[in-house]
Amino acid sequence: MSSQPERLPRQPPPGTRGQPLPDDSAHAPPVAAGEPVGVLAPYELSVNGTVRRVVGAWVGESLLTVLRDRLGLVGTKGACEQGECGSCSVLLDGSVVCSCCVLAADAVGAEVTTIEGLTPPDGLSDIQQALVAAGGVQCGFCTPGFVVAIHDLLSTRPDATELEVREALSGNLCRCTGYGRIVEAVRIVQREREAVGG
């Protein structure tokens, strides 16, 4: 008998799309009677400086899924689930990554920063404000991912050139703006931070 995940949030069971590929569970040891099937022991994640307990997750659950469906942090968006679109961007120990490509259980011991952690409690950050001002927000779905990527870029390279900005944002797709207004928003933040000596 192989272990069967009880719940696969937004993730279909194996074999429902195309041919089933090598199933690692074929080699899994039998599950003892009374042992919870398909669920990891509770573990803790540090998200936006707060320790959060994750209960009932299965081993293959992505950080994106855990953030949204288990921890209620729905600012991080999910779209492609394959690292192509950047809408799920978060900081993992300070580096921007796609949270759909991180197994949540592999984020144990790391500091996870989401869009909620980059948004001041009383309003918008300068990056968010500049995106609004420049017209870089249209449907808005990609915006949280862009804010995370721009935050990462400007904290390491505050004086990035336009080419560097475009390369740094190349992992974030926007189907509305054509990117010009998003790049302009970065320029606004750079000018503002330079003016205040930041």
Partner: peptide, 12 residues
């Protein structure tokens, strides 16, 4: 993770 997300791998 891409394989797992698509339901093509099921690690245990």
């Amino acid at each position: 993770a891409v394989e797992v997300n698509a339901g093509r791998r099921r690690p245990v």
